[in-house]
Design a protein around this nucleic acid. Structure first.
Lengths: 149, 149
DNA sequence: ACAATTATGAAAATGAATTGCAATTTCATA
DNA sequence: TATGAAATTGCAATTCATTTTCATAATTGT
């Protein structure tokens, strides 16, 4: 089963264990989010969905994303902005972000060495880490070229 | 001149170069922030100031913090919460944060190795970094002890 | 002191997140 | 297939921090 299939399966499982029912609209939103496999604000996802299924409301999108977050398929993060972004959670490794200040592109990366050093730091402070966030802001490859335009 | 004095001087300079006037109230807020030398939300700083100078309004505190941010003496960050926090900027090194999910304590740290690895990552993506943020969330020393209470 | 400009306080506006509620849909069971 | 309890949906209303407006007060240069 592919990655998307797994995610859908996990969502279905969460529904059954939580007494939730199926719904076309929510499924559409969930599928779209999982297929897209990238960051969304509620509003961004809402606008995309609306193009294809105009009868789906903001509330439904909002609640679908909250639900995805609850069942571990999306994580909510606030990239220093005032709006929440939801990103797909890949069962695999945690990832950090490079965020372009110009075009908004978000690049994910992983770096084991950094992760390890983080643990060292935490140990020094007798701090028990449950989550972390690392974000590098600046200009992405494309935007560096057009820096002075 | 001590660190606080330098900060005050920088603030004074910013005022003169920007045609701003002096004000008792704003100075009080600015001094308090600089002396305290720690994180504040607007509201937190407002409540502290209010105890000592009840005639100072939320607006003044808000605008003072915005101003401090503009002149580089404070930086605004959103620790994954819905509220902005302002932290003193020390002319010296950048620092990252350990954030206790239980008591809210924020511990600052610096780690050159991590900084270096970040640069390596950026280089790999041809990304030009202008700022970064690293936050480790979890339980601080004190809160680990009372974890199960 | 006067004029010009900035600072202040209180209230209103903004904007995103969240919730309440009535109408609708789902689904297990009769 | 019909039923009813429970979940879902859309819209409007609320919440809550941030930000702006505007009338008044304070500051600064002349």
């Amino acid at each position: 089963m592919n990655k998307h299939g797994e995610a859908i399966a996990q969502f279905t499982k969460h529904k059954s264990t939580h007494g939730l029912k199926s719904s076309d609209k929510r499924s559409f939103v969930v599928d779209h989010f999982i297929q897209a496999d990238r960051h969304f604000t509620v509003e961004e996802l809402y606008f995309e969905v609306k193009k294809l299924r105009p009868e789906i409301s903001y509330s439904t999108v909002y609640r679908a994303l909250k639900l995805l977050a609850k069942c571990g398929l999306a994580s909510e993060s606030m990239f220093g902005e005032a709006v929440s972004r939801y990103e797909p959670v890949h069962s695999s490794a945690h990832h950090d972000h490079l965020i372009c200040n110009r075009c908004g592109r978000i690049i994910e990366f992983e770096n084991d060495k950094i992760e390890k050093l983080q643990k060292d730091v935490a140990r020094n402070y007798d701090f028990l880490v449950s989550a972390h966030r690392l974000e590098l802001y600046g200009l992405c490859k494309k935007c560096r070229r057009k820096k002075n335009r």
